[in-house]
Simulated assay, not measured.
Amino acid sequence: MPVGLIALALGGFGIGLTEFVIAGLLPQVAADFAVSEASAGWFISGYALSVVVGALGLTAAVTRFQRKPVLAALLVLFIAGNLLSATADGYWAMMLGRVIAALSHGAFFGIGAVVAAGMVPPSKKAGAIALMFTGLTAANVLGVPFGTLLGQAAGWRATFWAITVIGVAALAGILALVPASAGGTEEAPSLRSELRAFRSGQVWLSIVVTILGFGGMFGAFTYIAYTLTEVSGFAASTVPWLLIVFGVGLFAGNTLGGKAADRNVDRTLLVVLAALTVVLVAFALTATNPVLTIISLVLMGGFGFATVPGLQMRVMKYAAGALTLASGANIGAFNVGNALGAWLGGVTITAGFGYTSPIWAGAAITLAGVVVMALAAAGAKRGEQQPGKEVRAVDELAVR
């Protein structure tokens, strides 16, 4: 694999770390700014909603530009946002930093996936995209727990300084190692042709499943530090190590979910989402038991991220070859789910339902995702029985 893919993965690592590490630092950040848990949760919801804006607005705005300089510009935006977060002197300055950093998120992954595919022969495109997204997985397995540990030892601002340095390193790597021709303008369709993807009802159904399926898991994860310390009885110092446990499940789920989705996307998503619903219900019921909580963390990470490859693949499958904007839009959908889960979890805590209530809310959201996925799968099956109805955009990507 080209070494430039490592630079893309490093950018994905930094962006994933920015998104998820705040969950482990939320109690410290809330105490520092003297705000409630729900108010601090908006650092997650605000980030997620800004990702949506960037995924759609920025991706649409730059779709006809050369992609290497676009990726570099997005990382400059990312660096600026994290620098502002590290130096924020108040709640709203921190929020602005989160918003600025988030604007680069969806566009970076949406465009970066096309660039990664453009760096390798057609037979290796899927592997190249997977390698880029490995950075996001690594951010959860290693970055989040160690970023939390750094924040607890040296203050939460130290974590954002570290992320800023990672962003600078990724920028240097992309400028030096990614070929200018990778995913160049000759491969980039016009905005009008990219919008064709949204004529497909299956694309919209896939996006809704992404919102609900990922939102359910993230609703439980957003306030996990409070659940672990206030319900399960773990010391705050153990939270980073418990997040490693979550990350191990995440890594395994992401890998196995991708392999399963290669065989049958819809069946995989139905089974995994149903299993995630069961896991969340079991977690909510047994959160007072430390041993069962650890098991639930592994399974929540595993089933939660086992959906990611399939959800991204499903959108691309029905996008009619207009992959860049559809890919970015689905990255945005993941973050709408993040915002929905974080917001609903904050509402339940504020209402006085306790620190297991976000897990119950997550289970309800995921169950809704199962229902929508069942409807989407039934519609797709009917379409496959009609010649010419199924669009295989992933194959078109391989031809590019």
Rank of each mutant, 00 (worst) to 15 (best):
I6Q: 02
A306L: 06
A117V: 10
T293A: 10
K68W: 06
W360A: 09
F303A: 05
I163D: 01
A88F: 04
I224C: 01
M373A: 14
S190K: 10
D89P: 01
T134V: 11
S193P: 01
E230I: 08
R263I: 04
G247A: 11
A377P: 01
T293Y: 00
G11I: 05
Q202G: 05
N330R: 02
S232G: 11
W343S: 14
G106K: 04
R157D: 07
S296F: 02
T286K: 05
L10K: 07
G304C: 08
N82Q: 10
Y47H: 07
R199D: 03
A7F: 13
V76G: 05
L273Q: 14
L71D: 06
V114E: 08
A169E: 10
M132G: 00
G112S: 12
L292W: 05
K125W: 02
G383D: 12
G11D: 07
F283G: 00
L131R: 15
V278L: 04
I129F: 02
L5R: 10
A275Y: 02
D32S: 10
G328L: 09
G233E: 04
L269Q: 05
K124G: 06
P179C: 01
S39L: 12
S237A: 15
G379M: 10
Y318S: 12
P121A: 13
T63L: 14
G383E: 11
V336I: 15
L177W: 12
G184H: 07
A102W: 02
I111S: 08
W343T: 15
R263D: 00
G173K: 13
R267H: 13
A287H: 09
L83M: 12
G213R: 07
K68Y: 09
I100H: 08
L280T: 12
G332H: 11
M316V: 02
G184N: 15
V399H: 07
F221I: 01
V279I: 14
P145N: 06
I294D: 01
V165P: 01
T210C: 03
S45C: 05
L323C: 09
L250K: 06
V203H: 13
S327H: 01
V3Q: 10
P122A: 13
G216K: 13
V53D: 03
A139W: 08
K124Y: 10
L323P: 01
L171K: 06
S36D: 11
W161I: 12
I6G: 07
F78L: 03
A172H: 09
T210D: 01
L375W: 13
V271H: 05
R392C: 00
F198V: 00
G90P: 03
A333Y: 03
A139T: 09
L131N: 07
A9R: 05
A80S: 07
E194A: 07
A284T: 09
A116T: 07
A169P: 06
K389L: 12
A236I: 14
A377L: 04
G14P: 08
A284D: 09
L280R: 08
F108L: 15
T356V: 15
E390C: 01
I365V: 12
T148L: 11
A169N: 02
E396F: 02
A102G: 15
G346E: 03
F20I: 08
G383A: 13
L103R: 02
F214W: 04
A364E: 05
R67I: 08
G304Y: 00
A380N: 14
Q28T: 10
S237V: 14
